[in-house]
Amino acid sequence: MLLEVTRTIVTKSFQLVAGHPAVDLVNTLDWRFREAGAEELLNTYEDLLRFTEQTGLLSQRQAKALRRTEGPTASRALQQARDLRESAAQVFYAMVDRVEPPVEGVLRLDRYMHAAQANRTLRWTPSGVKLVWAEETDPALPVWLLGQAAADALTSASAGNLRACADAACRWLFLDMSKNHMRRWCDMKICGNRTKARRFREQRSAR
């Protein structure tokens, strides 16, 4: 019963432990390094909206408008978000492992960053000139937001604090902003519960 309750909670909200939306995005492919295979958390366009809204990139007003979107355009945006995520994963994990990232990963991130920039414009508001999104009802808005976030994460001063969870099957990414920079786990409570759940499943399958 406890395990079923935990799974229900996870489907309603994302576990944001990374300290940055773009890094949390990489973690939406759960158990990325598990031998039994990864678990996709971005299964629908609604999942993408919930994630970008929960991270604070997308406002409630924007999300409400985008929830009216259905069909090929929403599906395309979901696929782009996943592609952006995997491109970011290639680069972020290379940084953590201190190796050179694949060129194609960097190039794809560059394309998403430029797509985000191409869809922003200067507009006059009562409080002055602001940089806003040209079309907030475009289904690709979450992708633009995440593309910009990925570029910000890679070029920020905190990029050097990028770490991966010490659990080899988990390896969720996070920014280690602890005082001594010795954080080893994505989250002790989350990873502890995940490990217990994994052992429970393994024991059941071995019977």
Rank of each mutant, 00 (worst) to 15 (best):
V5W: 06
T6F: 08
T6S: 11
T6Y: 12
I9W: 05
I9P: 00
V10W: 14
K12F: 10
K12I: 00
V17W: 12
A18M: 11
L25P: 02
T28H: 04
D30Y: 07
W31S: 12
F33A: 11
A36W: 11
G37F: 15
G37H: 13
A38S: 15
A38T: 08
E39R: 15
N43L: 15
Y45M: 09
E46G: 02
D47H: 13
D47Y: 05
L48R: 03
F51N: 00
T55A: 08
T55C: 13
G56P: 04
G56M: 09
L58H: 09
L58G: 04
R61E: 10
Q62M: 06
K64F: 06
L66N: 04
R67D: 08
R67K: 15
R67W: 06
T69Y: 00
T69L: 10
P72H: 13
T73V: 10
T73E: 15
R76V: 01
R76M: 07
L78E: 02
Q80S: 13
A81I: 05
R82Q: 14
R85S: 11
E86H: 12
V91Y: 06
F92H: 03
F92E: 02
Y93H: 15
A94V: 05
A94G: 07
D97G: 07
E100Q: 14
V103W: 12
V103K: 12
E104N: 13
G105F: 13
G105D: 08
G105N: 08
V106C: 10
L107I: 10
L107A: 15
L107C: 08
L107G: 02
M113L: 14
H114T: 09
A116V: 06
R120N: 01
R120L: 08
W124V: 13
V129Y: 12
K130C: 04
K130H: 08
L131I: 09
L131G: 03
L131E: 04
A134Q: 13
E136C: 04
E136Q: 10
E136G: 03
T137Y: 01
P142S: 05
W144C: 00
L146I: 03
L146F: 08
A149S: 13
A151R: 09
A151P: 01
D152L: 10
L154N: 04
L154A: 10
S156I: 10
A157Y: 02
A157C: 02
S158F: 06
N161Y: 07
L162C: 06
C165T: 02
L173M: 01
H181P: 00
M182A: 10
R183F: 07
C186A: 09
D187R: 02
D187L: 05
M188V: 14
K189Y: 03
N193V: 06
T195P: 00
A197G: 09
F200G: 00
F200R: 14
R201F: 03
E202F: 01
Q203P: 00
